[in-house]
């Protein structure tokens, strides 16, 4: 352990993984909420074209990747806002155009070897430069602060865009901010996770957290904790195994997801077992309704109809189901 921490490139890779592990799920939760889970994947494709341009022109590939990804993010969001991307064809053209341009341009670069290409696509602990770290830290700080400040509004727009527009929230600017945050996250992650795998670190920790949380706030916090564990754990494991860091991080994330799935399934099964022995099922609401008397709940006919009397649409196996209550709608 101390041996790993004393190695220069491992120190840089671990710092980069800390930054990635925190910000990728933080941005990812809004992407998941908007049901655009693969958008980060597409931006990774476009960022490759930026990397290629950087290598050919001897510019910083991080900077050129950031410019390419941000331009693509804004273009995609504007196309989506104009209702032109429902068939996904415009997205496909941008994404595949990006990766095709990346592969072709990188082949003309002095150090555009296949091995170099693979490092950008799938991540490598060897590639994080000290200068990269400063840029990544600054970008990660911008992402953290922006998401923290705009979090309630990003949540509102991702949750119900039509409502947000109706009540005058700045929907398009907020969506553009989220798109640029996603593009920036892709670039921060390109060294350690790789451009083809970054989407996984935005999505999988959130998918894991959603298995057991009951609120947006706790979902966001848990996703960040899981993201950090995956990123740091993946980098640590990739060194002794001599494996690409990006693939290792994603496999660790998926492993945690599978374990959490099993754990929550077993917990739900145990709860159902206990429930069926102790409580009979309620009769269906909707038949024989009388004001003041709701099937399944005893109440005084003169008291208000209890809100809790309505049956849930579906049980999602929440770990904290609301307790049955006979409390009325007014004191």
């Amino acid at each position: 352990m101390t041996e790993i921490l004393s190695i220069d490139f491992m120190q840089r890779a671990l710092i980069a993984s800390l930054l990635v592990g925190a910000v990728a799920p933080m941005v990812g939760i809004f992407v998941v909420q908007r049901r655009m889970s693969l958008i980060g994947d597409g931006m990774g494709h476009v960022a490759l074209a930026g990397v290629a341009v950087g290598l050919v022109t001897s510019q910083s590939p991080v900077l050129t990747a950031l410019i390419a990804a941000v331009i693509a993010a804004i273009a995609i969001e504007l196309l989506r806002a104009r209702g032109r991307t429902t068939g996904d064809m415009a997205l496909a053209i941008i994404f595949y155009g990006g990766i095709a341009a990346g592969v072709v341009i990188i082949s003309k670069a002095p150090d555009g070897t296949p091995a170099n290409l693979v490092r950008y696509l799938f991540g490598s602990i060897l590639t994080t430069q000290r200068s990269d770290l400063y840029v990544f830290a600054a970008l990660a700080a911008v992402i953290l602060v922006t998401v923290w400040v705009l979090r309630p509004r990003l949540f509102a727009v991702a949750n119900d865009e039509e409502y947000a527009r109706a009540v005058g929230l700045p929907v398009l600017p907020l969506n553009l901010v989220l798109a640029v945050l996603t593009a920036t996250t892709v670039v921060v992650s390109m060294r350690v996770v790789g451009l083809l795998l970054i989407s996984a670190l935005m999505i999988v920790p959130n998918a894991t957290a959603q298995l057991f949380v009951g609120s947006f706030g706790s979902g966001l916090r848990w996703a960040m904790v899981i993201g950090l564990a995956c990123a740091v754990g993946g980098v640590m494991v990739s060194y002794p195994l001599n494996t690409p860091s990006g693939g290792t991080i994603v496999l660790v994330a998926i492993g945690i997801f599978i374990l959490a799935s099993l754990g929550t399934s077993i917990a739900a099964w145990l709860r159902r077992g206990g429930h069926s022995m102790s409580e009979p099922h309620e009769p269906a609401v909707g038949s024989g309704f009388r004001p003041g008397v709701v099937p399944g709940v005893e109440c005084d006919p003169d008291s208000p109809v209890p809100a809790s009397a309505e049956r849930p649409v579906a049980s999602t196996g929440s770990p904290n189901p609301p307790p049955p209550s006979t409390k009325g709608v007014a004191p």
């Binding site: 109809v305 809100a307 999602t316 929440s318």
Partner: peptide, 23 residues
């Protein structure tokens, strides 16, 4: 509280009934 869900503030909305979700 006005819509009668004062005791459901911290309940995950997906577990509420259709009528409660409208409220």
């Amino acid at each position: 509280e006005v819509v009668g869900l004062g005791d459901r503030a911290t309940t995950e909305v997906g577990t509420l009934s259709g009528g409660q979700q409208r409220r």
